[in-house]
């Protein structure tokens, strides 16, 4: 723009203006020239911005890392028993945990009994995540395009025609063990390492493996949208109801009437087993739901 004006100005000074003015040029040429000039300046602006952004980002990152490193050097030594993080809360959880919750696994006793609201909100976060992913990716009447339908049809045909024999054989041998292991981890959450989240993730992985070997249509016979909705919401409601009961009785100093059982047995530690099963259900459904929604856009 400036250059253009300068040209006109110089032409006017030289006395060669008017005839060779920009108005006489074909419209397209003017347009073209103008656009090119604009693009160049835009590009320069972007380059400048990028350089500035790089510098600022590097400085900010270095500042954050140096502050964190300085803080880390003020921490007590690694594995120090006098670490201030090991305070009376920890002592209480460890010493009274078995007696009060009946869980041999203190972490399970802590997160599902003492801090069960935390765990409940966690499951709700997972539920919320799968709901929002469903809102974004589910192919319903608001989210449909011809292209995708054709692609979907292609993938379905590939899935049917080109089934992988080795994968299918291996999966049919391995899958029962995976599912059994998942159930074991969920049910033994209160007596050994594990619990609802890890066991649920194992079961979800088993479902994903099955879906990738035999196709999602095959899984849908067993696990469709309706089962997904029912299982997830029932598990969450069951969790909320049982925890509401124990909060109510606990706050009013009432006796829960739920026996804690002998520590180490499967049926022990009160509500922890039930809650673990609920969480396991939610996690397994969520993991599989994520996979299918990303791969197919429908459960």
């Amino acid at each position: 723009m400036k250059k253009d004006m300068w040209k006109r100005f110089s032409a006017w000074v030289n006395g060669t203006s008017e005839e060779r003015g920009p108005l006489e040029l074909p419209d397209t040429a003017v347009h073209h020239e103008k656009k090119k000039l604009f693009e160049l300046s835009d590009e320069q602006k972007i380059r400048l911005f990028k350089a500035g952004y790089l510098a600022v980002a590097a400085v900010v990152c270095l500042a954050v890392v140096s502050v964190l490193l300085y803080t880390v050097f003020q921490l007590p030594l690694f594995g120090d028993p006098n670490n201030p993080a090991v305070n009376d809360v920890v002592e209480r959880y460890v010493e009274k945990g078995l007696e009060e919750t009946g869980a041999v696994n203190m972490v399970a006793g802590m997160i599902i009994d003492y801090r069960s609201f935390d765990n409940f909100v966690e499951s709700s976060v997972l539920f919320l995540a799968v709901t929002s992913v469903m809102m974004l990716l589910l192919r319903d009447k608001n989210n449909i395009s011809r292209e995708e339908d054709i692609q979907e049809e292609h993938e379905r045909i590939i899935e049917k025609e080109a089934s992988d024999l080795i994968l299918q054989k291996v999966v049919s041998m391995v899958l029962p063990c995976i599912m059994l292991f998942g159930v074991y981890v969920v049910l033994n959450g209160h007596i050994s390492p594990g619990g609802g989240f890890s066991g649920g993730a194992v079961m979800g992985a088993g479902l994903i493996l099955y879906a990738s070997a035999f196709g999602t249509d095959k899984v849908r016979e067993l696990f469709n949208m309706k089962t997904f909705k029912t299982v997830t919401s029932t598990a969450l409601l069951c969790y909320a109801a049982s925890k509401a009961y124990s909060f109510y009785t606990g706050a009013n100093g009432l006796h829960t009437g739920i026996p804690l059982g002998t520590p180490g047995a499967i049926f022990s530690s009160g509500l922890i087993l039930v809650l673990d099963i609920c969480v396991g259900m939610v996690v397994a459904c969520t993991m599989y739901g994520f996979y299918v929604l990303f791969a197919r856009g429908e459960i």
């Binding site: 993080a85 920890v90 959880y93 460890v94 203190m106 972490v107 802590m110 997160i111």
Partner: peptide
């Protein structure tokens, strides 16, 4: 035992 809270 180690601190169980960070695990949670």
């Amino acid at each position: 035992y180690v601190n169980p809270i960070p695990a949670g």
